[in-house]
Amino acid sequence: MMDELLVMTVIAGRRAAFRAVEVQAVIEIEIIHPVPRAPDFIAGLTALRSQSLTVIDCRRSLGLAGDSAADSRAAVVEVGGHPYALLVDTVEDVVEARSAPHPVPGGLGAAWERVGIGMIETDAEPALLVDIAKMVAGPDQAIRGLAA
């Protein structure tokens, strides 16, 4: 897994990495059209060229409070044939991985455990490699049930 390219982001103040091959683009989101009655981690819909993207608020997908919209940049990914925009605090850079993902001593904590694949080393500081499919799926049914 050496030399793999990573998109470095900040989610809820923590460094999180997406596999660059999974990210189709990083876009500037102009307007988000809310989706009434959708779970709160779905920020809404936005248009990218002729596509309609489902915008996922990563902070809320982790079950954390607060909004991600400090910077309106988002990573565009496709899961199960549906296009999504992952809304994060900031998108920083594309860097090379310096290690394979490996478990974090002491675990990731309740919020991150579900989406985290493992810790990955970069030239700067280490980051958490995130599973986009789990990020898109949102909190577990149980958590969603409590929220509703």
Partner: peptide, 21 residues
Amino acid sequence: APAVMATGVYAGTTLLDDGSP
């Protein structure tokens, strides 16, 4: 997307001429 579909009140999405979904 499945999570939006699960609300049960929507059948699909579409873009208007002005580009808004």
